Amino acid sequence: MSYVPVSRRTLRRRRESERSTRRLVAGLSFAAAVVWLLSVGASTVIRVGAPAYTFAVVLHVMSLVVAFGAIILVDWHGFLWLLGRRSLSEIIRLDGAATPLIWGGLAGMLVTGAFLSPHLTSPMTDLKLAAVLVLSLNGIMLIPLMRRLAHLPPGTRFGALTTGQRIHMMACLAISQACWWTAIVVGFINAES
């Protein structure tokens, strides 16, 4: 490792950036938990008729398709980067383009979920709702890593990341996929019963 002199001003900016990122992550995590609680709470009091329920289901599934489709695309390109078949700059660019789709779809699912009258006494429903909360928080926990990756040279390979960064990325990927698939499978099982 080579020594690269860094000014105190640069070090101060980095520390301030890290602090602002931590504040952002904490604020977004709190907001995600509150929105999730509001959605679950609203679902206990909102009752709609058959046409509105059907409309809510259609919008819920469309939101799922948008969010999960974007997740699959980003994760697939991330996997290709891991294999050396994509550049880091492509991944960062794709992530930036997909992020509004992911969060917009997730917001759509939370809003429409309030109209679906979930069976909150069912352990399967509780599992699905917990998976949705965890995947939201997991996405927020990726923000610091993605910000660090955006500052790396465009051709940086996965193997050049620190061990902590690689573990962080792989853990977030595994949690994301586990939570999305859990929520989807449980949602369809609950729809059949």
Rank of each mutant, 00 (worst) to 15 (best):
V134S: 00
A56I: 05
E18N: 03
T112P: 02
I189K: 01
G41V: 00
G96L: 08
G78E: 09
E16L: 08
S29L: 04
A160Q: 04
A183Q: 12
R86F: 05
G78F: 04
T99E: 12
R47Y: 09
G108N: 10
A130C: 12
R148L: 09
K128Y: 01
R85A: 00
R47G: 03
L161R: 00
V25C: 14
F115V: 01
L120Q: 03
G139Y: 01
I71K: 08
G159E: 06
G104T: 11
A183N: 08
H77F: 12
T163H: 13
P144M: 09
L145Q: 13
G96S: 01
M141V: 07
G41A: 11
W36G: 00
S29F: 06
T54V: 11
L37I: 05
L161W: 01
G164C: 02
R47W: 08
P51G: 06
R147N: 11
A70P: 08
S43G: 01
L173I: 12
S89P: 00
L173W: 14
E192Y: 02
E16P: 00
Q177I: 15
A67M: 15
G139A: 12
R148W: 03
S43C: 03
V65D: 06
R86S: 09
L135E: 15
A107F: 13
L83C: 05
A67R: 11
S136E: 12
V25A: 05
V74D: 10
N190K: 11
L37E: 11
W180L: 05
V4M: 01
I184A: 14
M169Q: 08
A33H: 11
V186K: 05
L37T: 12
L28Q: 10
R15N: 05
R93E: 03
A50T: 15
D126N: 14
A130P: 02
G84T: 06
R22P: 01
H77G: 10
L83D: 04
G41L: 03
L129V: 11
A131R: 10
S7Y: 10
L11Q: 15
I46W: 07
S87G: 03
A42G: 01
A33Q: 14
S176R: 12
A171E: 13
L152K: 01
L82V: 04
R85P: 05
T99N: 13
F188S: 08
A131P: 10
N190T: 06
R86D: 15
I91V: 15
V132H: 08
R13T: 05
I140V: 15
V61F: 04
S122P: 11
S43R: 07
P51N: 09
V111K: 06
A183E: 10
S2A: 14
G164L: 06
P100Y: 08
R14H: 09
S29M: 10
S29D: 14
L116G: 03
M141D: 11
M170Y: 12
A32Q: 12
T182E: 01
Y3I: 10
A107Q: 07
I102A: 07
V185T: 14
I189R: 13
L127K: 08
M146F: 00
M169H: 13
L110N: 04
S2H: 14
A56N: 01
F79K: 06
L94S: 05
F115G: 00
A67P: 13
T10C: 10
P5S: 01
E18W: 00
P154Q: 07
D95E: 11
V186P: 07
L80F: 03
S2Y: 08
Q177A: 13
P100S: 00
L127A: 14
